[in-house]
């Protein structure tokens, strides 16, 4: 069986368990990992177009997420709607400013930066950029890990809704903005997962070895 795999040849890596296997000499669309049985692709399939589509959807949802209130707070018959930004301002005025800064970063800065960073990474790959691949790879790893912190506001709404339900005396209701905001967080997580950071390295010139282009790869032009 070993003859079917080339020893010098290119390898495939399982996305799930990271097992390295030799590429079969006959291309197999439905290659399964011998160890964890996940399907193996050389690169995440349609990585760039998926990333773009998810980013575009995230940008579209980001606008109503900020315009619509995420919750309505009723105290003693008086109702007040809260958007993401007004929630941050409330924390700054009434609460403690460190918490306001954390929420501002998590809910406003992180989603915008995450969308912009992923878009520019995808763009740089599309343009076969040679610019500082190590830094771009690091940027991707940061974006991948900080995105989850945007969930803070969704959790705040959940906790307030669960705690404050005393009828007209005091109650909190979740509103449409929370739905859009949660959607933005999920879409950006999926976009980050769809982006294949190895594409950054595939487009480098003068790098032997790991960027061997495979038969059946969607980017045969190289």
């Amino acid at each position: 069986m070993a003859a079917a795999f080339s020893i010098r040849g290119p390898h495939l890596q399982c996305h799930t368990c990271h097992l390295v296997v030799a590429t079969p000499s006959v291309p197999d669309e439905r290659l399964r990992c011998p160890r964890c049985r996940a399907s193996i692709h050389r690169r995440k399939p349609n990585s760039l177009s998926r990333t773009w589509a998810l980013l575009l959807a995230a940008i579209i949802c980001y606008i109503p997420a900020n315009l619509y209130p995420i919750m309505e707070v009723t105290t003693l018959g008086r109702t007040q709607a809260d958007t993401i930004l007004s929630g941050v301002i409330y924390l700054y005025v009434h609460g403690t400013w460190p918490l306001a800064v954390i929420v501002f970063i998590a809910s406003v800065v992180v989603p915008i930066l995450k969308i912009l960073t992923l878009a520019s990474l995808a763009f740089s790959v599309e343009r076969s950029s040679q610019w500082r691949p190590r830094d771009r790879a690091r940027l991707y790893r940061i974006v991948e890990t900080v995105g989850r912190w945007s969930m803070v506001d969704v959790y705040v709404v959940t906790i307030l809704v669960a705690l404050v339900h005393l009828g007209s005396l005091a109650s909190v209701d979740a509103r449409l903005g929370a739905v859009f905001f949660g959607t933005v967080v999920v879409l950006t997580i999926l976009a980050a997962e769809s982006f294949d950071p190895r594409l950054i390295w595939d487009r480098l010139e003068g790098e032997p070895g790991a960027s061997v282009v495979q038969n059946g790869d969607e980017r045969d032009g190289e």
Binding site: M1, A2, A4, F5, H11, Q13, H18, L19, V20, V21, A22, P24, P34, R35, P133, A137, Y140, R141, P197, R198, I200, W201, D202, G209, A210, S211
Partner: peptide, 17 residues
């Protein structure tokens, strides 16, 4: 080790083997 499994490790980020 088995059919085509090599004692190699790959980088998850850049696919260096």
């Amino acid at each position: 080790i088995g059919d085509g499994i090599l004692q190699l490790v790959g980088c998850h980020d850049c696919d260096a083997v």
